[in-house]
């Protein structure tokens, strides 16, 4: 019985210890961000591997999600004769929720796991300690550019996801199912507010980007430097990012849209 309690206590303490580590790590990153102004090239290289290489999966997922949304919404809306409001329904759900959330989940699968594996392997193959020996701060050289690349890429990717998704639902709704072209866009423009819906979606994607990149670089930096440890850390990145993004999404939605 006492052993059991001790195990719980131990597990709880470990969780808090990791959380504390992660917070301190985050503060170190934030303090070191100015290094990027002196060496912008580091950032560009990471933007390529984090952002540009995620482009394909984001665009394809956005297109299919938009097309499926258009198809399914149309089937329900047409029963009430309100298929003209397909535009606002799809645009609002994409801009407010699906764009930021799905992009963050895909991002952690495509880019976050790669970041963790990369940093973890650098640690396992002692590259990070070599850098330290050469008086190069691995935090500034390796971690900060990757973190900032994630933070910058996320809102851009989320905006592309939403935009492509709306185009996908336009193709299905107007092109295949015969929703009126003018009604699709005009109703959308009437209902979607720039300052509330679009801006809140962007804020969400920035927050998700910070959370997802934070988890990814921390798990990599904190990984047990063995083959198994790196693989565990990579798995943890994807799982924890999913939890964090979905939890944050609920909180943010409650704050942003809860009072309507």
């Amino acid at each position: 019985m006492l052993d059991w309690l001790q195990n719980i206590g131990q597990a709880g303490l470990r969780v808090f210890q990791r959380l504390g580590h992660a917070t301190l790590f985050m503060l170190q990153i934030l303090v070191s961000i100015p290094v990027l102004f002196r060496h912008p090239r580091l950032l560009i290289h990471e933007l390529y591997s984090v952002g540009v290489l995620s482009l394909a999966i984001i665009v394809i997922s956005g297109l299919t999600v938009g097309m499926v949304l258009g198809l399914q919404m149309y089937n329900t809306l047409v029963d009430f004769g309100t298929e003209d409001s397909l535009g606002p329904v799809v645009a609002l759900s994409l801009v407010r929720e699906l764009g930021p959330v799905l992009t963050a989940l895909l991002f952690s699968g495509r880019a976050g796991s790669a970041l963790t594996a990369e940093i973890g392997l650098m640690k396992a193959t002692d590259q990070l300690s070599v850098m330290e020996m050469m008086a190069v701060d691995p935090l500034k050289r390796v971690v900060v550019p990757r973190y900032m690349a994630g933070v910058i890429s996320m809102p851009l990717l989320a905006a592309m996801f939403s935009a492509v998704g709306i185009l996908g639902s336009y193709m299905v709704g107007v092109g295949m199912l015969g929703v009126d072209d003018g009604a699709f866009w005009s109703q959308m423009q009437d209902k979607v507010m720039l300052d509330e819906d679009v801006l809140n979606g962007v804020i969400k994607s920035i927050v998700f980007g910070m959370a997802a990149s934070w988890i990814a670089v921390f798990e990599g930096y904190d990984a047990v430097p063995t083959t198994e440890g790196v693989s565990r850390a990579t798995t943890r990145t994807v799982v924890h990012t999913a939890f964090a993004v979905l939890g944050l999404d609920f909180v943010l939605t409650a704050i942003m849209f809860g009072d309507q």
Partner: peptide, 19 residues
């Protein structure tokens, strides 16, 4: 190109989707 595409997406969300 990536950043330009992202900006274009923002632009579309602002001009075409919202008012």
């Amino acid at each position: 190109i990536f950043i330009a595409l992202g900006m274009a997406a923002f632009f579309m969300l602002a001009m075409k989707v919202s008012n």
